[in-house]
Simulated assay, not measured.
Amino acid sequence: MSPKKPKWREVADHFANEIAEGKYRPGDQLPMIRELVAQGHGSKTTVMAAYSALEAEGLVTTTRGHGTTVRRRPPQQIRRHQDRYNWEKQLAKRGDGERRNNGVVEKDTGLDHDEVECHAAFNAVPADQEVAARFGVEPGTLMLHRHYWHSTPGSPIALSLINSYLVHAVAARNPDLLDSSREPWPGGTHHQLSTIGIEIAEIEDGIRTRLAAPDEARHLGIPAGSPVLLLDKTSRSTAGEVVEYSHVVLPGDRTEFRYTVPLDRWED
């Protein structure tokens, strides 16, 4: 026999189910704590614990003086990286029209091309110790730092936060690669690097977690202290050189990684 749920969990699950069923929609306000206490849902402490759980689970936002409202949640992202990276590489070789109307963000979220807005800012920066070590260059080597985030039209909430690095002298072989106004670039990084004779042959991912920094939580539209997924992505050329490094911050409440790993067959 399973143990009985604590009262605060029962209250939290009740409202989580009503949100899932659409009784409360994004932007709707949940009942005030004093109302639920008066209706017999538990003590003030119980209801506050229930609302805190809903906020920690990313379903609601509580603001002092404004109560608790259902969050407007950006789309879920499902990142199937083995398929995703090969798909993006092949996209780089297709015609300009097809490249302009497709992208990995759309692939991850299921959004149409016109439902995604790209925001980009580029800067020339000296490589710090970590970036220099990843590229095998001297600290202080000039890098092209590219900061990206994507959103749905008119929304201030980022789907992810991306910091990408290229060796500046390499990217400068095509001056167009230094110009953030050309983003979103049709065909992405694979096509960008192909314009300077570089083919990506291997991508290495590292995934870890931590709590969001305050500015990350604000930009990603998640409660302060929520977990985020950190993706360190290193791309190597056919010559074995690191040609791009990206550090991606993804909201833990709406990101899922899926992998299908083919295994070698046993020899008879």
Rank of each mutant, 00 (worst) to 15 (best):
G197D: 01
Q192I: 13
G197H: 03
G188S: 15
P186F: 00
S181H: 00
R173E: 15
L177A: 04
W185I: 13
P184H: 04
H190Q: 11
T189E: 06
G187W: 14
W185H: 08
P186I: 07
R182L: 04
L177F: 10
S194K: 15
L178D: 01
H190S: 07
A201K: 12
T189R: 12
S180K: 13
D179I: 09
E204S: 09
D179L: 06
P175V: 04
P175Q: 06
E204C: 08
D179H: 08
E202C: 11
L193M: 11
G197Y: 04
H191F: 15
E202D: 08
G188T: 03
I196P: 01
T195L: 01
H190W: 08
I198G: 12
Q192C: 04
Q192H: 08
T195Y: 07
N174V: 05
E183L: 01
A172F: 03
I203R: 02
L193T: 14
E204W: 08
P175C: 06
E183W: 00
N174F: 06
E202L: 06
R173T: 09
I203V: 09
D179V: 03
P186V: 00
A201P: 11
D176Q: 11
S181I: 09
R182C: 03
S180R: 07
R182N: 07
I203N: 01
P184R: 02
I200P: 07
S181R: 13
G187E: 00
E183S: 03
I196A: 06
R173M: 13
H190R: 15
P184F: 05
T189M: 10
W185E: 00
E183N: 15
H190K: 07
Q192V: 09
P175R: 15
I196W: 11
R173G: 14
